[in-house]
Design a protein around this nucleic acid. Structure first.
Lengths: 204, 204
DNA sequence: GCACAAAGTCTACACACTGTCGAAAAAACT
DNA sequence: AGTTTTTTCGACAGTGTGTAGACTTTGTGC
């Protein structure tokens, strides 16, 4: 089985200049992701793009998946900050609009990483562990907005939690599709904001 | 690269009893999918479960991915039939309700295959080629219902085509999530029907 | 009942990629 | 200069895919 051993041999907490290499590796991975895509992206090619050999790369990361997971983590942490900050906007309607706008912007800047995260999340536990919480965090933020807007609070199938969860998945998936098929992110954003508002009966 | 050669050496159109083997292979694959999941599902194990060796399996299918693709195709073809038949129901509202019901039922019966299709679709072109049209067909069916219910027709960001597309993705993703996390399909269905109806402003 | 092809099956091999080991080189520290 | 710690490398082993060619079974016309 391709299971990754639990035994780490990374360095403890060295402050050394090798940390730069770590970032360089992530940069190389992201660059290669945009240029060549997931296919043909092997540990060898990542290492070479970062100017080292495979063996050296395994000093910094325990596995190929760890590299991707770290990359996703790095990207996702900023999304989380953006969306939650949008939450305290004037009106609920404006908060939602802004949230969608932020998400679209994120896709514009880091689309390849987001895309890779979604595609690999189901298959790579390490990535799932980074991606799922990020989505969940967005769901929580929007649930608060929804409840503030008068959507019945609670965990029932037709109450705020479930409704916003489904809408967040819709958002994730729609932007993903737009990215994959080369569709317009602006149009997608317009569709999504419209659906969010009508689905939650905000600002008739 | 794991590219599959275009050279086929399958048999032409033999009516022989070897066709049974072909089905047996798919059955074995589906069974193994439900029992062991995607991980550790190798050509070896599929072949063994079907009572043949790896080499023999490659006589029937050109690659491992071809096996999965065929399995998805077999499953998806029935979904398509179900949903389009639901389209000609009495009222638009009832048609949508029925559509969601049918989809839920599909997930109940073939959840593991659906799940595998979604997870592998981004990574395996052959599977994508089977899955994407199926989703698109459902989107078309629902778009017709929506337009019939008074949603402005057209391809603009806030018109029927785009709206139903996004909602279909929401449906796909929500059932998928429910399956993965072990959530209730009934509750998910309830949430989804509610969202479909309010998002399209049907039956206030 | 038999030659001969087609359909079906097998074992063995080649190849790609991941992850591991232990030894060498570079840096940092004394 | 001596020694430890960090970093790098080349070589190896394991696992899984797909391919090649030989061998067996099944059918079919004579």
């Amino acid at each position: 089985m391709g299971e990754t051993k639990d035994v780490r041999r990374r360095r403890k907490a060295a402050p050394s200049k090798g940390d730069l290499r770590e970032q360089a590796i992530l940069d190389a991975a992201e660059r290669q992701l945009s240029e060549d895509g997931l296919d043909g992206m092997t540990v060898e090619t990542i290492a070479k793009a970062a100017g080292i050999t495979r063996g050296a790369l395994y000093f910094y990361f325990g596995s190929k998946n760890d590299v991707l997971a770290a990359l996703v983590e790095r990207t996702v942490s900023t999304l989380h900050a953006d969306v939650t900050s949008a939450a305290d906007d004037s009106t609920p309607g404006e908060a939602l609009r802004e949230g969608v706008r932020q998400t679209a912007q994120m896709w514009r800047e880091h689309g390849t990483v987001m895309r890779a995260a979604i595609e690999l999340s189901p298959v790579v536990p390490a990535i799932d562990k980074a991606w799922r919480p990020a989505v969940a965090a967005v769901a929580v933020a929007t649930r608060n907005i929804a409840e503030q807007a008068g959507v019945p609070a609670g965990n029932g199938p037709q109450e705020a939690a479930a409704l916003t969860a489904a809408l967040v998945w819709m958002t994730e998936r729609s932007f993903y599709q737009a990215t994959v098929t080369g569709g317009s992110l602006e149009d997608t954003a317009a569709t999504l904001t419209h659906l969010w508002l009508t689905a939650l009966r905000i600002d008739a």
